[in-house]
Design a binder for these strands. Structure first.
Lengths: 231, 231
DNA sequence: TTGTCAACGATTGTACGCAATTTGAGGTGA
DNA sequence: TCACCTCAAATTGCGTACAATCGTTGACAA
């Protein structure tokens, strides 16, 4: 077996087949490797991911379809930059979807699922200012309740929006007061789920989303204020 | 200058530049030229739209991102087939989004917009069983209230879902009873908007969506029943 | 009838050439 | 100094060809 040829080939194959190019670019956008507004030059990306232009173009078009990328005629692709408006629009939608989803969860959750949520919440309670850990656990907390929902379209939408907002939120720290609110809201959700009170669960969830929205927008505005004064 | 070459070239250019390939395929999917489940073979489409494989591939990937097409690894693309489940999932989401949008419209509609809605509703009232016309006017009726909304993401989502459901609903006629319900619901929405009663407008809108959902699903089930007995 | 396997069709990735467009740099003139 | 023009480089978008790979199909044998 031609070792060298195989090695050369397999490096390429491994790098390419590891995962679809589309996923890799998407992840790099979400975790900030490619941050908002960055130009996405086809030739560059092809080199970067050790691929060629066709797969890159296809991935970019798909990402445009999902809203992560904006392609303009003859001007190429850019990572979608999420401004205050867009963020508020998305949170508005989440404020409708999440209560809808938690309602079903409240009615259908198994004891094991509830126990899992409680375990995660316990971990969160014991956290002490570690934002990174909080974001991860918060994600897990909510995904317990949404992952099993019957409405796959809603799940996918939620995921997309969560990812988009994730890459925006990462830039801003959680204030102490918001942290406290989050704990409060989580406790409220848990209590409601335990007692199978769908209305209460929905109400707490809506508060949770609106709270997150206000928190983010305050930070964006503060950030813009600082930018302006720096000028 | 090689005339023949130029002619060959210019025909291609004219046909291609009419509109982006992506739009043309999307429209053909929505209005049923390419119906659900159809295989989308790249070479075929390239011929059909007088283009080449690269643009087709890109268009298909973008359409996948938007949910109109499903691409499976090494098995090619198909027009997404919308089953009962998916339809209900989408209607569930619309039942959240549309009331949200009508609320804003109720608070912010200009007199001219309300008058426009009334004019469209008058036309609908005078219709007599013409389903085709009803669908068009119904679309216009609702687009008056949604097109001006501040939440662009919600508008785009609504439009996508409406198009997906449009291509499904087209296969089934409107029953007399559903027709009557629709008129009733429209009148309710109009009255609520006129009196700036957001809650009422939202309630009627939600009923409108749920009614449409039930109507469609009944037809799908009836259709399946007929298929089975035909076997 | 069932299972195997080879041929075929289609997708997927790669490569190259060419036209059209955008963009930025530099020069010109008011 | 500033507006405006020109031009060249960079990049996109499209067309084409081709190799590798995967799924499917259908013939054939057990």
């Amino acid at each position: 077996m031609g070792d060298i040829a195989l090695i050369g080939r397999s490096i390429g194959v491994v790098a390419n087949n590891e995962r679809p190019l589309y996923h890799r670019i998407r992840e790099d956008i979400i975790d900030g490797q490619l941050d908002a507004g960055t130009r996405l030059v086809v030739a560059e990306l092809a080199r970067r991911y050790d691929s060629s232009s066709n797969p890159v173009r296809e991935a970019l078009h798909q990402l445009q379809g999902e809203g992560f990328v904006v392609i303009s005629q003859n001007r190429g692709a850019r990572v979608r930059s999420v401004g205050e408006h867009f963020a508020r629009d998305i949170y508005d939608i989440r404020a409708l979807i999440e209560p809808y989803m938690i309602r079903w969860f409240t009615a259908n959750a198994t004891k094991a699922q509830i126990a899992e949520m409680e375990a995660i919440q316990d971990e969160i309670e014991q956290l002490d200012g570690d934002h990174e850990a909080y974001r991860t656990l918060n994600e897990r907390f909510h995904s317990v309740s949404y992952a099993g929902h019957f409405n796959r379209e809603a799940i996918d939408m939620e995921e997309r929006y969560r990812e988009i907002l994730f890459m925006l939120n990462k830039r801003y720290p959680l204030t102490r007061s918001r942290w406290a609110e989050c704990l409060e809201e989580h406790r409220g959700i848990l209590a409601a789920v335990r007692s199978r009170d769908a209305d209460a669960a929905a109400a707490f969830t809506e508060r949770h989303v609106h709270g997150a929205c206000r928190h983010l927008i305050d930070h964006i505005r503060a950030g813009r204020g600082r930018e302006k004064s720096a000028k």
